[in-house]
Design a protein around this nucleic acid. Structure first.
Lengths: 216, 216
DNA sequence: TAGATTGTTAATCGATTAACAATC
DNA sequence: TAGATTGTTAATCGATTAACAATC
């Protein structure tokens, strides 16, 4: 049913939603593809294509889309209305920050617990989330039928932990480590690789600095 | 000079580097595009293209690339050898986690200070980095000639802060907020949007769960 | 030498953009 | 009605993949 919608489209949806909330706050009852595109530095074409492919709600020629209906439609489309449980593996600095990140609820994600090997934090709570020993990971995931894991362990443990997660029945791994993990193809992986992101930003910066030099 | 190298190539470079370090540790003196591709789930074609476009060091037919030379070449290419200073704006939970992230040094990035408006943390240090009032941001950036900023303020302040950063002479913004920021086109922006990433992962998960359903 | 692997060119693929008929 | 905007189709663009001559 969504197999033909590109992942790029999914990537833009939360941005549309955020913009729509702002428009709603400003009292706009309708929005056009041009307005959405301008707010997000996109083209009207891509906005129209995304919305027409993905959503139940139709726009009206000359009027645009009804703001609140579009908000509801995209929220539904993204599954923000029914929370999905997740576990977080590796409660170090980054893991703790993510445990305390309040935005996830808005995005339909509920972290039920963190797992770690450090006895100093096991048994306690961080930002209200219980920290359990890694040994209990598989049992908890199986019992609760959890499909999503956030991976924030040190890079050298990433693959071993991914294997364990796979065995436990996890079907989506949000990988915040710098390691590339190998998983069976019935598991989705999304890499949040800081080093890669920074490399791209640096390249863009170098390009800009070069241009400035030329112009001086 | 690098204007014709795609940003995708830059994105893959740190992954090559990481893999090469592992290969080196295993004692491999040479690596082929096939080996690199296998380790990272890429095709040999893209590896060869990336390396030939970006790098000074040539591979040898039948042998491959010299591991240590390739490491050196990519490190140089990515600018890991000369640290670039950066400021971090917004020392909340995520900001603090990034202030404490030790990996940045390896990637050529040095965070010199964090900025915030909270008197409770201003004047102190977090993970060894001084926290200064936002009012001192512009002066510090100008004086030190800093070009890179990490943006971790609440979304509603993102645009105002981006404007301030632009005025101060920042040329690259690593945006960790969910807000889309508008900047002049002599400033590079890299968005690290959790909501967008999660949307993509959820879509992939939904696809997988659908397949499993069909097969049962 | 024979065969593996490079570097590069041409073909493919997929996503974005442009164009336009339909329509409110 | 006239004009703005949708939804969709065709054209463009860029990145990946496949193919292959060069070569160690």
């Amino acid at each position: 049913m969504n197999g033909d919608i590109s992942l790029q489209t999914f990537h833009r949806m939360p941005q549309y939603l955020k913009t729509l909330y702002e428009f709603k706050k400003e009292g706009r009852e309708n929005v056009s593809s041009v307005q959405l595109a301008e707010a997000l530095d996109l083209t009207p074409s891509i906005v129209k294509k995304d919305l027409s492919q993905a959503k139940i709600q139709d726009g009206k020629p000359k009027v645009g889309y009804a703001t609140v209906d579009l908000i509801e439609g995209i929220s539904e489309f993204l599954g923000y209305n029914n929370l999905k449980d997740a576990v977080l593996v590796g409660a170090g600095k980054l893991g703790q920050a993510l445990l305390g990140y309040e935005g996830f609820g808005d995005y339909g994600l509920n972290i039920v617990a963190g797992f770690d090997i450090d006895d100093g934090i096991i048994g306690g709570k961080i930002h209200g989330k219980p920290i359990l020993p890694t040994g209990k990971l598989q049992g908890a995931v199986e019992k609760l039928g959890i499909k999503i894991a956030i991976l924030t362990v040190p890079a050298e443990h990433a693959q071993a932990m991914a294997d364990l997660l796979a065995k436990a029945g996890i079907r989506a791994i949000w990988n915040f480590t710098t390691a590339h993990i190998q998983v069976p193809d019935n598991i989705a992986v999304r890499n949040e690789n800081m080093a890669s992101s920074l490399a791209v930003l640096s390249a863009q910066l170098a390009e800009i600095m070069k241009k400035e030099e030329i112009c001086n």
